[in-house]
């Protein structure tokens, strides 16, 4: 049998292609998977633009019509497809081949394959799912909206590690339903106008917005940190440096850490400055004057 070349850049496309391949019992080693979106630049080196556009619209480089259908209704469990769908957000152009190899084995080798967590391919699949899941969670956490002055439009710039933009839509839509917002990423923009959600082409850089409220956030960040408890490693394992460039508070980390020893010492020094009994009476009187009791 000859090598068959197919294209996939999205889960749905991979699924359609895989179905046709499984129907014809074509074993994974005869298939070459290409991801036109992730390998765009390398393709462009060899093909002119119009040609590469055509490739995007065509899932099969090789004609399958003269290979007979032997398994008309291949079926894969919903859980397997769900796992693959999530993992397909992983930014790696070898993933489609892995997914096909896995469904092939699920059909021909072991229906319970996904449960076998020490199998190398399943380990890889689980790693991808976990990594994507974490990236989605971090995007929910680290997107920072800025309000465009004199408008009610909130705009954020974020650079996700994986292809997760669409996966975060329901979170932002349901949380900020009554707000107009846009999240721009290198993979594309996602917008909500309080009624509908829509996507736009990728943007290449973060917009420059000056939101004066950000200074309150920085003030908060500076003061909620206890300098007597510096634990930089713990912080970095949860908020890795790769996210710092889009977090307004991140530039404070360096100075806060540097000053922490001195600040902690100052806290201890001030220890001995408790106020005298006389002053204590005054303080009490002043609080009572400020907040007079209504009843007596």
């Amino acid at each position: 049998m000859h090598v068959i070349t197919v294209n996939a850049s999205e889960f749905a496309q991979w699924r359609n292609v895989s179905r046709e391949l499984l129907k014809r019992d074509i074993s994974p080693e005869y298939i070459v998977w290409q991801d036109p979106t992730l390998t765009q630049s390398s393709l462009d080196l060899f093909q002119d633009a119009s040609n590469s556009h055509e490739r995007n619209n065509n899932n099969f480089e090789t004609d399958l019509s003269n290979i007979p259908v032997t398994t008309p209704k291949p079926s894969i469990s919903a859980e397997t497809l769900e796992a693959i769908e999530l993992a397909s957000c992983y930014r790696d152009d070898t993933r489609w081949a892995l997914f096909y190899a896995i469904v092939w084995r699920v059909m021909h080798e072991d229906k319970q394959l996904l449960e076998n967590i020490t199998d190398n391919q399943i380990m890889r699949l689980n790693h991808m799912q976990k990594s994507v899941g974490r990236d989605i969670h971090k995007m929910h956490a680290f997107v920072r909206f800025q309000k465009i002055s004199d408008s009610d439009h909130y705009v954020a710039w974020f650079e996700p590690e994986h292809l997760i933009l669409k996966k975060t839509s329901s979170f932002f839509k349901n949380r900020f339903k009554n707000m107009t917002w846009s999240i721009l990423t290198p993979d594309g923009g996602m917008h909500w106008d309080q009624q509908s959600l829509f996507y736009t082409e990728s943007s290449s850089e973060r917009p420059v917005i000056n939101d004066e409220l950000e200074s309150l956030w920085l003030e908060y960040y500076r003061n909620i940190f206890n300098p007597a408890r510096l634990k930089l490693k713990a912080m970095q394992s949860e908020m890795p440096k790769k996210y710092w460039k889009n977090l307004p508070e991140a530039p404070l980390i360096k100075s806060l850490s540097r000053e922490s020893a001195a600040r902690a010492e100052a806290m201890i020094e001030k220890n001995n400055q408790s106020i005298s009994d006389k002053k204590l009476g005054k303080q009490m009187a002043s609080i009572q004057k400020k907040f007079p009791t209504k009843t007596d």
Binding site: R175, N226, E249
Partner: peptide, 29 residues
């Protein structure tokens, strides 16, 4: 809970919470 049928903003995730930042003491904000 979320705001899909509300007039304001906000949602909760149910199980796990979300840490929007971490301070240099390693604590979640």
């Amino acid at each position: 809970r979320d705001s899909s049928n509300g007039t304001g903003i906000g949602s909760t995730s149910g199980g796990m919470g979300i840490c929007h930042s971490y301070t240099p003491d390693g604590r979640c904000v």
